[in-house]
Design a protein around this nucleic acid. Structure first.
Lengths: 165, 165
DNA sequence: TGATGGATAACGATATATCGTAACATATCA
DNA sequence: TGATATGTTACGATATATCGTTATCCATCA
């Protein structure tokens, strides 16, 4: 459902400050050698699905860390595993307070919150979107009119609640 | 917003019959040599964004067509362009009625319909989802409760309309 | 000091490819 | 003939990587 016809979630602001991503990645690799994709997934989990780092930054950052000697990579079955080096571990230790600051920011961004409730409601919305998406291609005009009106009304109502301060 | 925490649209049924995809792809290549990704996009456009073929089938099918000699590929800037061969054109011509049947099915799937209205309403839903997604991480509990209730009620209402026959 | 320009890294789009899963058609068996 | 098994391909997940865009920081200038 997310493609050029239904433009994706647009953030228009960055979650990570410039230069911070490499610390996060190194910190993850400290625990476990990983594929690029696994790093993306691990970060996604950290934010309970509400943020996903872009492959466009993760892969170049991994390459940069490799160039700097903080990470090494090996290829297996055509897939790359990245491993932190001793230099990388030393760098991490030296930058301990930067990492603590970043961790704090990540924690602040994701408040102490029961994300299951969020997931449930987003899932409800998603299921609805899915249903509409599945039926849209051959829906009767009158029914569609009713549905469109209900969608508009509902969206306005919910946005009003959210707008209230 | 579509990731493992918010499972993607699940079709659980195929749009194309087994073996039909290769005809669709060849037909597209007849008009224009393309990247795999361009073929995916062209098909997505055909269905106005309501269906997207899987890379998991498109790429192997292109490879198969290459193996069969109906398509040739050349690489430029690390990216592959697929071009229909004379054999492929002949095969297309020989299978003209199969292709007409498939075209008919595609047309039937996508009824004569003004998709702009669909897009608009899906967009509204999406914008709502986006707003929630952006605010979820630090929303006040009481407000969230109100929003959750509104979401559930709205979804039920719309699903009820859709359920009516 | 505020405005402007430039640099850079995170984000988003483009592009590739394979493996695992499931739908579904066909063959086989009772 | 209906039930079961098998094979195959579309779908979905995993995995990679680069280019174009944009947000944002920092430097420079007036």
């Amino acid at each position: 459902m997310f493609n050029r016809h239904f433009p994706p979630f647009e953030r228009h602001s960055r979650l990570f400050e410039k230069g911070d991503l490499k610390y996060v990645i190194l910190n993850l690799l400290k625990d476990k050698p990983s594929h690029g994709y696994e790093i993306i997934r691990a970060m996604e989990d950290t934010f309970h699905g509400f943020y996903t780092p872009s492959a466009g930054s993760v892969y170049p950052t991994l390459q940069m860390l490799d160039d700097m000697g903080y990470v090494s990579s090996s290829e297996r079955d055509g897939k790359k595993i990245y491993t932190i080096t001793e230099e990388g571990k030393k760098f991490l230790k030296d930058q301990k307070d930067v990492i603590e600051k970043i961790k704090g920011q990540m924690k602040d961004w994701w408040g102490p919150r029961d994300h299951e409730e969020f997931h449930e409601s987003i899932r409800e919305l998603r299921n609805l979107g899915r249903l509409i998406h599945q039926k849209a291609h051959n829906m009767a005009p009158e029914k569609w009119k009713d549905i469109r009106e209900a969608i508009s009304r509902s969206c306005r109502e919910i946005e009003d609640i959210m707008g209230k301060e």
